[in-house]
Write a protein that binds this DNA or RNA. Structure first.
Length: 834
RNA sequence: GCGGACGUGGCGGAAUCGGUAGACGCUGGAGACUUAAAAUCUUCUGCCCAUGGCGUGCGGGUUCGAGUCCCGCCGUCCGCACCA
């Protein structure tokens, strides 16, 4: 009699076995082909959530499958452990960020272990430990010596209450997200990494990333934002000049004004002697920054009274200060061509500037042109002297050539991408290993003095940077002259920490960041899995860091991640009480609030979030159903790139399936009579499933693999006892092992197969077993299904046609007349055309 | 505004090359077992005016045949955003 599968007992047992045997420790010296499977490492915020469970389950199935197919798999885990939440906790709970972080790591590690992930814990790392960030400091200094790091004054978002710099994402409607204070623009000396030096490489490299989602590649492409055009100077009526950039040099003869940004030096100079101009600039700065405001904001300008001389002698253009020109893109100045740019059109309309058409799209004449909007498409140049008759692209080249010949301008490329500002006025990050000396200037901390460690005795009772106000930490002797000097009290952006952790996982010597040969033997990461929210920043920074390492000669690797997969979120229904309070799922039963019995409104299905209270904590779920059921549910139903809705029924269903498996496995092991005889249909089903599930896992189509395994399970359940059935059950153990490893080990052991199923080989497909001897053929009339026939596979066309035409319904449909046409697709269908 | 993705039963979804739409799961119905319940098993479950007809957001088109290809709409979601 089959017993129930005791998941809690089996989970704990097999997790301990794997741990003790170091089953999933990756061997650097293995002769097997190596493969690196990686999920984005978590921030240790407290407890794991369902999103982690889904992410890591997907990676785990792939890692376990690759092991079974003969690969040496590197599948590590660690902690992205620096960051603001730890400092916030320090302020709110009076606990040291390190204490808080390490406690969270311990909790979350225990939770991850309970899910039975095939992780190499021997390589665990936390970015907040000196044995990680010290090496990061060494890499930073390496970049510094190679000219990839520089320091410059730059405007930052400054929260005057918290006394700290805020990232753009932390500024909400112009106010600090925590303090609510109006954010100021402040000039601060900041460290920058020269990501723009690699802009072209990073853009071109996207083309080689075939196994990345198109969406992510496109987002990165847009983020890099390459534009090619002409950069040149206008001579100004006051004797000065202004440099502009344009992607449309072909429309030069349509120019009717020049506009500069409000914070452009020319605007500033004008404002100095003109209160109206100063007032206008002030007004520009007050403009809202939200999408909606920008969309509706009127194009405003202030006529400086200056004029700019057209380089081709086509007159003088008025120079405006305009609110729609951005200082930090291009040169902060543009020339306006109202006929062929919508913003310029709006502006010219408002200020009654000429609208001169210079590109004709063929149909339209001057008369019916451009009363309402600018023409930005292709066409033939008109009203443009030497450009007349050229198409847009030829005209661009012609103007750039003339500018370069004449020495007043040159073809140039502009990127939207900015250099990466990495200075943060925070405690809980990697200290920037630079010393500022009165006499020597910036001095790199010598290698033997690394790591520059964080002081432990810091306070968070007042706002500001604890490193900066620490009584002694920043005071050091200058490594060069020995005189009094100060440490840089900023720490690195935490995106730096996550820009190379995957290399440190591959190789972690004590005395250097990584061993080149070992790292190169694992990298690039074959499959990287994580949330789409990292599509731009993290993935771009990691790609940059890798190229920078290559640039300084530390590794021969262009792209860190060959394959990228962005998984969907875990969602749940939301619940609201009559008074508008959000309710947690566990507070609701049968449509009423458990406490008090008040009515509950079921709201939208949304991403699990604390604010909507629709989270489900994985831990009690694992307690109740076991790791395998949770894993199985995470893989079922929804395609992995889409959102997965958590539901009670769903996890129940997964749990039922685990028990179904157990009835098969246990019944077999319990010594049901060894059956004899073969079952050709079941053999075929089995081998089709082996092939299909393997392909589905490789494609990360876990939901399809799950469906195939359900089918095979049902087929085995229904099959009469036979040797084929025994084989199918034994094989099923291995097929489900990557997904539900605990029950698979339990069954494998009970069957005395020897060794661990985690080390077993993936079953081989016997191609001979895949061959069907009969096929079902669709019989259609005019493309509509009328009947199906089961015929021998590979029957000649004429025999299939004859069989189809003999079918009752077809005879009736033909009504004695010959068909106009009969289409026969071998082994597929017959379509009778009347 | 620009760019992208998606739209299939009550729900999540499947259909790899243009060839039987709705696999598989969930929900729901009926039945078996049981004193009863749970568990389990069997069976049904796209819609309708049902020997047939209609069905993959809507309208056209190509084709012997369209969820799949083409054209034009509508809707939802995501990303970027005055980018010169």
């Amino acid at each position: 009699m089959a017993s129930r599968f005791n998941a809690l007992k089996a989970d704990a047992h097999w997790q301990q076995v794997w741990d003790e045997a170091r089953t999933f420790a990756a061997d650097d010296h293995s002769a097997k082909p190596k493969t690196y499977v990686l999920e984005m490492f978590p921030y240790p915020s407290g407890k794991i959530h369902m999103g982690h469970v889904r992410n890591y389950t997907m990676g785990d199935v792939l890692a376990r499958y690759r092991r079974m197919t003969g690969h040496e798999v590197l599948h590590p885990m660690g902690w992205d452990a620096f960051g603001m939440p730890a400092e916030n906790a320090a302020m709110e709970k009076k606990v040291h960020p390190g204490t808080w972080t390490r406690a969270n790591i311990a909790t979350m590690k225990a939770q991850l272990k309970r899910l039975g992930f095939a992780l190499d814990w021997t390589r665990e790392l936390a970015t907040c430990e000196p044995d990680y960030y010290g090496h990061e400091q060494a890499l930073f200094l390496n970049f510094y010596r190679s000219g990839l790091v520089y320091r410059k004054e730059s405007a930052v978002n400054w929260d005057p209450v918290d006394m700290t710099v805020l990232a753009n994402e932390q500024v909400i409607d112009g106010r600090g997200w925590r303090s609510g204070a109006l954010v100021e623009k402040r000039k601060l000396s900041q460290w920058f990494l020269k990501i723009t030096q690699f802009a072209d490489e990073l853009l071109d490299g996207l083309g080689s990333l075939e196994h990345w989602p198109d969406k992510v590649r496109l987002m990165q492409e847009n983020w890099i934002g390459k534009s090619q055009g002409l950069q040149f100077r206008f001579a100004l009526s006051d004797g000065g000049s202004v440099e502009v950039f344009t992607t449309r040099p072909d429309t030069m003869f349509g120019a009717s004004f020049v506009a500069v940004a409000a914070d452009h030096p020319i605007a500033q100079a004008v404002a100095a002697g003109n209160p109206d101009a100063a007032a206008f600039i002030e007004r520009c700065k007050q403009g809202g920054t939200t999408a909606a405001e920008l969309e509706t904001q009127e194009k405003l300008g202030f006529d400086t009274g200056l004029t700019a001389t057209h380089p081709f002698g086509a007159g003088e253009l008025p120079v405006y200060i305009a609110n729609f020109v951005l200082m930090d893109y291009g040169t902060g100045a543009v020339f306006g061509v109202p006929a062929h740019d919508q913003r310029d059109f709006d502006f010219a309309t408002k200020y009654a500037l000429p609208i001169r058409r210079v590109v004709s799209d063929g149909d339209k004449t001057d008369a019916d042109f451009a009363e309402a909007e600018a023409w930005t498409g292709p066409g033939t140049l008109v009203n443009s002297h030497f450009l007349d008759g050229m198409d847009v692209e030829d005209a661009k080249r012609a103007v750039i050539a003339r500018a370069e010949d004449g020495g007043w301008g040159k073809g140039s490329t502009v990127y939207r991408l900015r250099d990466w500002g990495v200075s943060r006025q925070r405690y809980w990050g990697t200290p920037i290993p630079i010393i500022h000396c009165q006499s020597c200037g910036e001095v790199a901390v010598p290698r033997e003095q690394l790591p520059v460690t964080l002081p432990e005795d810091v306070t968070f009772d007042v706002p500001g940077n604890p490193l900066d106000r620490h009584p002694t930490w920043k005071h050091v002797a200058c490594p060069q002259c020995g005189g009094e000097a100060l440490r840089d009290t900023d720490t690195l952006d935490t995106f730096a920490d996550s820009s190379w952790y995957f290399i440190r996982f591959a190789s972690q010597p004590d005395d250097r960041p990584f061993d080149r040969a070992v790292a190169e033997s694992w990298l690039p990461v074959a499959q990287y899995i994580g949330g789409v929210e990292h599509a731009i920043l993290h993935l771009l920074y990691a790609r940059f860091w890798t190229r920078a390492l290559r640039h300084v000669g530390l590794i021969d690797l262009a792209e860190p991640f060959t394959g990228l997969f962005t998984q969907g979120m875990v969602t749940h229904e939301t619940y609201k009480a009559a008074d508008g309070r959000w309710l947690a799922p566990e507070d609701v039963r049968d449509g009423v609030e458990i406490a008090g019995g008040g009515p509950v409104t079921v709201g939208r299905v949304e991403k699990m979030s604390k604010s909507k209270k629709n989270t489900v904590d994985p831990e009690p779920i694992v307690d109740q159903y076991g790791a395998d059921a949770v894993r199985w549910f995470m893989l079922s139903d929804s395609p992995p790139e889409r959102d997965l809705e958590w539901s009670e029924n769903g996890i129940e269903g997964a749990w039922r399936f685990v028990q179904r498996l157990w009835r098969l496995f246990d019944g077999e092991a319990a010594g049901d009579q060894a059956a004899t005889g073969s079952d050709a249909a079941l053999d075929r089903k089995l081998h089709q499933t082996i092939a299909g599930v393997g392909a589905d896992i490789e494609a990360l189509s876990f939901n399809k693999a799950v469906a195939k395994l359900y089918e095979l399970t049902s087929a085995i359940e229904k099959a009469a006892p036979s040797a084929s059935r025994d084989t199918a059950i034994a094989t099923l153990m291995r097929l489900v092992a990557p997904m539900v490893p605990h029950i698979a080990e339990e069954a494998w052991a009970a069957r005395a197969q020897g060794g661990l199923i985690a080390d077993a080989a993936w079953p081989a497909v016997d191609p001979a077993m895949l061959v069907e001897d009969e096929v079902t053929i669709a019989i259609q009339v005019n493309g509509k299904l009328r009947e199906t026939l089961t015929l021998a596979k590979g029957l000649p066309k004429d025999e299939v046609e004859a069989a189809a035409l003999a079918v009752d319904k077809i005879v009736r449909a033909l009504d004695g007349k010959p068909p106009r046409k009969v289409i026969v697709v071998p082994d597929r269908l017959v379509n009778v055309v009347l």
